[in-house]
Design a protein around this nucleic acid. Structure first.
Lengths: 330, 330
DNA sequence: GGAACATATGGAATCGATTACATGATCAGG
DNA sequence: CCTGATCATGTAATCGATTCCATATGTTCC
């Protein structure tokens, strides 16, 4: 591999001069510049960012830790992050935590060893050990999806989104409403959305039956299982189902349709996420758009602010959301 | 940031010894080892891969160039790639070409400047300039999705998949078959799948009407547009539609349903891709599973072979595929 | 004509690791 | 007691860039 020294020798100048040509800095005569560029061209020399980073102390790489790569949310978010970061010449180093907290911590260390300029943590469960690790590192970290104490984060407005969805159902006249959630250890999706649901029900003085409150695990199948339980374990069926994710909602819809219960005439269903799926299932699913790509962009923005403007104080950004009314609701 | 020198000073040994402890190599006394480890622990020292790579000439990073990040195919593929690469201690540096050939070339250079150990190119259109650039670089490159001359590639069996799908329709008794493709500049999706369709029609002595051959651009909407043209521009409608991607097929289905034409009684629809969507639209879509994650794994495997076993000779791997029969076909 | 300044270039230290080589101690075997 | 392993550690070069500082040559202005 050809190095700056080769270029220097071949052009008959010092590597200092070559460096000047490369970075367009300092004084270089036109003739020297031409000569050097000519040699660079003919040798196909590409300077090593490696070596440069070692000296300049910045890699122009941002590590992105994802809970899982192949999800719609993740890919939208990464798309947004990349859009913004690439504008500023940053690259993304990907790390897949695979829903595993230990791996998340391991990746933090790994990214640190790669001397990334910053780390974006697309978070699920926030654990004390994780927070501790983050605080020990002196690399800017920005979280997306869950609030992490002490660092900048972009969070979805889970509480209000879920509250609005529930209110919507209630205002449409529903009184018997079922709920399909996920484990409350997931603070945003599990805990907050459930809290909002319960609060809204209470605000409207509606009863909540425990048999109608079920839990799934983020996939379509478990949404169906939860729905089965709701339908089978109680004498009376709810007239509406609020599932905390689109996939859970779609699983529920499948089961409802299998039982020849009409959606939305007999049971309305709503989800959260505005997945591609939600638009094309039938009936189309009423859901909430979380603007994931925008969230990615905003997260990258916070990162850039910390890197470029040396912003120290952690910021918290609350994303807005949009209700999408479709046919699964009446 | 604490360096190996700091550790050396604090532990009262040379940095050579620290390096030995770090890499578990050479001779180090138990006492020295303990001392060094203790200091490392207490300072939270993380060695710089940066500096290490500069010396050892390998970064343990693989660049992955994607035509577009937020697609189902891309995320499945990346998932597969990451699974295999992480087993071998490699990380992924992401590059988004955004369906832009110039950006693809630009990213090749950028990745080269980062001294990645290899590059995986998830390809769409192969252009001569791109091939030239690849050949000039002395970094292992593996392509996925399209065959690139001179380098290892993993390709889907577009021809046979499309031929099988067409035969399937014909054997179900369909004679009037419409086709929704994409631009033939996309060799795999555009050219090969169309060629297979035409070949199969010919083999069964079936006529192909030009009004029934339409083109879209990879999204659901354009599938619908193509379908509208097919239905409106010809006196007689086809009894089956073969769309080269699931999204095109789903767009077509939407339009067919809007016109109150029954799927599959009046028109059957098939796609390719086995997208999540295909399973949950109604009727569910008959499609072809391309095993994207597996393809990602295999691609990573080829890369590992080149890196670890120093395999020189380019290999070509043809992926298998699986027909998924669902309700959109009769 | 010399001080002050702009222009052009190179020498050498530096970033944080690895590693070839040298050196010194310890110990076993003849 | 000497020889040659084996063990333990350190010195210094190296990877490929950037950058501070020194030096040399013009150029300008009083």
């Amino acid at each position: 591999m050809v190095t700056i020294n080769d270029i220097a020798n071949l052009s008959g100048v010092s590597r200092t001069t070559v460096s000047r040509v490369l970075n367009n800095s300092g004084y270089v005569s036109e003739s020297a510049k031409r000569k050097v560029q000519e040699i660079i061209e003919s040798t196909g020399y590409v300077p090593s960012e490696q070596a440069k980073s070692l000296r300049t102390k910045q890699t122009k790489v941002i590590g992105v830790i994802l809970p899982k790569i192949s999800t719609e949310t993740a890919s939208r978010v990464v798309d947004g992050i990349d859009k913004k970061l690439s504008e500023h010449g940053y690259h993304i180093l990907l790390a897949n935590a695979n829903l595993n907290v230990e791996k998340e911590i391991e990746h933090l260390r790994l990214l640190q060893s790669r001397r990334v300029d910053g780390i974006i943590l697309v978070a699920t469960n926030i654990e004390t050990q994780l927070i501790k690790t983050i605080q020990e590192m002196n690399v800017p970290v920005v979280a997306l999806g869950q609030e992490v104490p002490g660092i900048s984060s972009v969070v979805y407005d889970d509480y209000h989104a879920a509250y609005d969805v529930t209110s919507l159902l209630i205002e449409k006249g529903h009184k018997r409403i079922g709920f399909i959630g996920v484990s409350e250890t997931d603070r945003a999706v599990g805990f907050e959305r459930k809290r909002a649901f319960l609060d809204a029900m209470k605000a409207y003085n509606l009863d909540v039956y425990s048999a109608w409150i079920q839990e799934g695990v983020f996939d379509i199948h478990s949404g169906g299982q939860a729905m089965k339980t709701i339908l089978e374990e109680s004498p009376q069926s709810p007239t509406a189902i609020f599932a905390v994710t689109d996939r859970l909602a779609i699983g529920a819809m499948q089961v409802i349709k299998e039982k020849n219960i009409d959606i939305p005439k007999q049971i309305s269903v709503v989800g959260i996420g505005a997945s591609d799926l939600s638009k094309y299932v039938s009936p189309s699913l009423t859901t909430v758009d979380y603007y994931n790509e925008k969230a990615g962009i905003e997260t990258a923005n916070l990162m850039i602010e910390q890197l470029v403007k040396k912003e120290e104080k952690p910021k918290k950004l609350l994303m807005s959301y949009g209700l999408i009314l479709r046919d699964s609701l009446s």
